[in-house]
Design a protein around this nucleic acid. Structure first.
Lengths: 217, 217
DNA sequence: TTGACGGCAGGACGACTGTCTTGTATAAAT
DNA sequence: ATTTATACAAGACAGTCGTCCTGCCGTCAA
């Protein structure tokens, strides 16, 4: 076998690749897809165009790799945060990892929306967005099932549709935060977070309201 | 007063402007923002670059006008569909107008996502997206209040947070449809629609489930 | 009849794009 | 020691971009 004798991909090589991908997602978050070019990514990464082209066949594959990398990064973060938690407490940190409490998660959502948009044109990106949706969905579903087994929530709650609705709502909330600076501050987000959890525990819409709304529309 | 003697904006002038705006949103829906240029819009509208530049100072203002136009178009459609309805039935058609049942509403969401993305960079677009969100929110809120007065839903349902959650969920659902072709067909959308409505009427999560899910994740 | 002017078309230009290509330096394989 | 392959840099090029600019044509004012 020839492959076995080939030198393993060195650490620095892998690191440089990741470095470029990080730069790429930063460019997208800061300047959008219109500011995303091989040159700007190279500049952000502090290297030459040649290097970027060396690691990525062309612009499209750089974009695809960036989408996958951004997704992985989120999964790493959430897995570290959830740690050994299960049930409702796991669900809570999982959702909190999504909410744009800081600039990092806000940039995450900017990047996600960028890829959603790009996915409407470039079909190769469709799969990535879709896969990451179902990854989060399944994680939430498992949390809810655990919560049910542990008796944290009622047994008659339909976990599948509830998981989906929860995720969809959080998605809607996060993209709303993108163009509403008022919304993406600690208090409004926390209020909605406790709303969701109380709602799950009681299972009744009447218990949705938690305190006064912080903004009047 | 000099303005009074000026000839009114002729119908053809106004129509040509709208024609260009329609072409612009079509370009965005079909080819995305990366395919959106003065030249491509002109070609789609069947006129010259000069004409586009004549009606719109520059590319940015064309983009902004397109965002506002797309928003108006949706409002016209939904107002015509809602007509004299009130309460839950009004709410239902309002939400159904959002769901991507056909290519028109699907393109609508493509365009919306495009502007969300653009809004993360171009702050002049932020306001438009935000305003249109609260327009829909207020409409839903009114429907829910009416439904409450008419006794269609329980009096103790907190209408404000419920309206918000409903809208956020639908937003999340619609963007999910963008990169999940399975989801944007009649049956899955209808199932979720009746879920939402049943949920409002009963007010209990336990009643969320409606039939079997059409897709297993 | 002359002149002004708005609707409209398209040329010109400099900036930027993705990609192809050639270059050099370093390290591994023979 | 010499070949081979890889890591990396940057020049060249053809194309597209937004915008400015000039010009044509029709209409209305004087």
């Amino acid at each position: 076998m020839k492959e076995a004798s080939f030198p393993k991909v060195s650490d620095t090589t892998h690191q440089r690749r990741e470095h470029i991908l990080q730069a790429a997602t930063q460019v997208i978050a800061q300047d959008g897809l219109s500011g995303f070019s091989v040159r700007t990514v190279a500049k952000k990464a502090g290297c030459s165009r040649g290097l970027v082209e060396h690691y990525f066949r062309n612009k499209a594959s750089l974009l695809l790799a960036s989408a996958e990398w951004a997704d992985e990064q989120y999964l790493h973060r959430v897995n570290a945060a959830v740690a050994a938690k299960t049930g409702l407490s796991a669900l809570e940190v999982r959702l909190r990892c999504l909410l744009p409490y800081d600039d990092i998660t806000l940039d995450d959502w900017k990047v996600r929306v960028a890829f959603w948009h790009q996915g409407t044109t470039l079909t190769s990106l469709e799969g990535t967005s879709n896969r990451s949706f179902y990854t989060v969905y399944n994680a939430i579903l498992k949390d809810l099932k655990d919560a049910q087994e542990q008796g944290e929530i009622a047994a008659k709650i339909p976990v599948r549709v509830t998981s989906e609705m929860l995720l969809l709502t959080v998605m809607g909330l996060c993209v709303s935060c993108l163009n509403n600076p008022q919304l993406r501050t600690r208090k409004p987000l926390d209020r909605r977070m406790t709303m969701f959890l109380n709602f799950l525990k009681s299972g009744n819409v009447a218990d949705l309201e938690v305190g006064d709304p912080e903004v009047e529309y």
